[in-house]
Amino acid sequence: MPLRFVESVDATRLFYLEALGFESLMGVVGKDGALDFAIVQREGAMLMLSRPEDAGPTRGPLSIYIEVGDVDGYHAELVGRGVAIVEPPTTQWWGDRTFSVADPAGDALYFWQTVADMAPPPGVTLI
């Protein structure tokens, strides 16, 4: 599932919904009332939209989320192969356990597995 960093999640999400006929799966409203993040889908194709963030030098313009059956096992396998891990395994508030590596172009590859129910932190509004 690709993750696109866009200047306006609201405007981009609206384009996908109104112009392209996608459906909204979820959105996270930021402290300023604008969307920080959204997921849209159409016929099984999903796209994540996010405001730009200070991601450091290892992340390129594209991030791809790849579901795996055993995220911790896959992490151990990659460490055993000597692959540099950018972000260690972490259980996220949305219930996915993730870790990331960077490909040679600097794009982020996130490997994930759902391990828990969603538990938004205080102040996070879902739509």
Rank of each mutant, 00 (worst) to 15 (best):
7 E>D: 13
22 F>Q: 06
8 S>Q: 09
13 R>H: 08
21 G>Q: 14
26 M>R: 11
21 G>W: 10
23 E>P: 10
30 G>E: 03
25 L>H: 14
14 L>S: 14
12 T>N: 05
30 G>M: 04
17 L>Y: 04
4 R>G: 11
36 D>W: 01
19 A>E: 14
15 F>H: 12
8 S>R: 09
13 R>E: 07
7 E>S: 15
35 L>G: 00
13 R>D: 04
35 L>I: 03
21 G>Y: 09
7 E>C: 15
28 V>E: 02
12 T>F: 05
17 L>K: 03
14 L>H: 12
22 F>E: 06
19 A>F: 10
5 F>A: 07
34 A>T: 10
18 E>N: 11
26 M>K: 12
22 F>G: 03
34 A>D: 07
13 R>C: 07
31 K>G: 09
19 A>G: 10
29 V>L: 05
29 V>N: 01
37 F>L: 09
34 A>V: 07
23 E>V: 15
17 L>N: 05
36 D>S: 07
37 F>P: 01
4 R>I: 14
6 V>Y: 00
27 G>Y: 00
30 G>P: 00
14 L>E: 13
20 L>F: 11
21 G>C: 13
12 T>H: 05
35 L>C: 03
27 G>L: 03
30 G>Y: 02
9 V>G: 02
6 V>W: 00
33 G>E: 01
15 F>W: 13
24 S>P: 14
24 S>N: 14
17 L>C: 04
15 F>D: 09
13 R>F: 06
22 F>Y: 15
28 V>H: 04
4 R>D: 13
29 V>Q: 04
21 G>D: 10
24 S>E: 15
29 V>E: 05
14 L>G: 08
23 E>K: 13
28 V>C: 01
32 D>F: 03
10 D>N: 06
35 L>D: 00
22 F>D: 05
18 E>I: 08
9 V>T: 04
30 G>A: 08
28 V>S: 01
16 Y>V: 08
8 S>C: 07
19 A>V: 12
31 K>L: 11
36 D>F: 00
33 G>F: 00
12 T>E: 07
4 R>K: 14
12 T>Q: 07
29 V>F: 02
5 F>P: 04
28 V>T: 04
5 F>L: 09
19 A>R: 11
22 F>C: 09
34 A>N: 09
34 A>W: 04
25 L>C: 12
18 E>F: 08
27 G>N: 05
16 Y>I: 07
4 R>T: 15
34 A>M: 10
34 A>P: 04
20 L>D: 10
30 G>C: 05
5 F>I: 08
4 R>E: 15
26 M>G: 10
12 T>P: 01
22 F>W: 13
4 R>V: 12
18 E>T: 11
25 L>W: 11
6 V>H: 02
35 L>H: 01
5 F>G: 03
32 D>S: 02
28 V>A: 02
5 F>E: 08
15 F>V: 13
7 E>K: 13
35 L>E: 02
21 G>I: 11
8 S>E: 07
23 E>H: 12
33 G>S: 03
13 R>P: 02
27 G>E: 04
18 E>A: 11
37 F>Q: 03
8 S>V: 05
14 L>R: 13
4 R>P: 15
32 D>T: 02
